[in-house]
Deep mutational scan, measured.
Amino acid sequence: KWEEIAERLREEFNINPEEAREAVEKAGGNEEEARRIVKK
């Protein structure tokens, strides 16, 4: 599940997989929260 979210974030925000994974981890697997983290 987290991998899927990280993949979507990576494609959408054009970030590297590591950044995407970190955002999802910080968000506890919550996609909306992960998006907010990435946008900062």
Rank of each mutant, 00 (worst) to 15 (best):
E25M: 14
E18K: 08
N16L: 13
G29W: 04
K39D: 12
E4V: 10
G28S: 11
G29F: 05
W2A: 06
N16H: 11
A27L: 01
R8G: 04
R10H: 07
K40C: 09
R36A: 14
K39E: 14
E31V: 05
K1L: 14
E3S: 14
E32V: 08
G29S: 01
E11R: 13
E3N: 11
A6L: 09
K40P: 08
N14D: 11
V38Q: 02
R8I: 07
N14W: 07
A20I: 06
A34F: 00
E25L: 15
G28D: 12
E22H: 12
G28Y: 10
R36I: 10
E12Q: 07
E33W: 10
V24W: 04
E18A: 07
G29R: 03
P17K: 14
A34Y: 00
K40D: 15
W2V: 05
E19V: 13
R21M: 14
A20S: 06
R36D: 11
R35K: 08
K1E: 14
P17A: 15
E25N: 09
E7R: 12
N14K: 12
E7G: 08
E18P: 04
E3Q: 12
A23H: 03
A6D: 02
K26G: 04
W2P: 04
E19I: 11
A34G: 02
P17Q: 14
I37N: 07
E32S: 09
R10V: 15
A20N: 01
K1T: 15
E3R: 13
E11D: 11
E25P: 00
N14V: 05
I37G: 04
E12S: 05
N30P: 00
A34E: 01
R21C: 07
E25H: 13
N30Y: 05
R21L: 13
N16Y: 07
I5Y: 02
E19T: 09
V24K: 01
R10S: 12
I37V: 08
K40T: 15
R36K: 12
N16S: 15
E33A: 08
E4P: 06
E19L: 13
E31Q: 06
P17E: 14
E3H: 13
R21I: 10
A34K: 00
E4S: 09
E32W: 07
N16A: 11
E25T: 10
I37R: 06
A6F: 05
E4W: 10
I5M: 14
I5E: 02
I5F: 04
R36T: 11
E31A: 06
E32M: 08
E11N: 13
I37A: 08
E33D: 05
A23N: 02
R10D: 03
E4K: 08
I5A: 03
E33F: 06
V38E: 02
K1M: 11
E22Q: 14
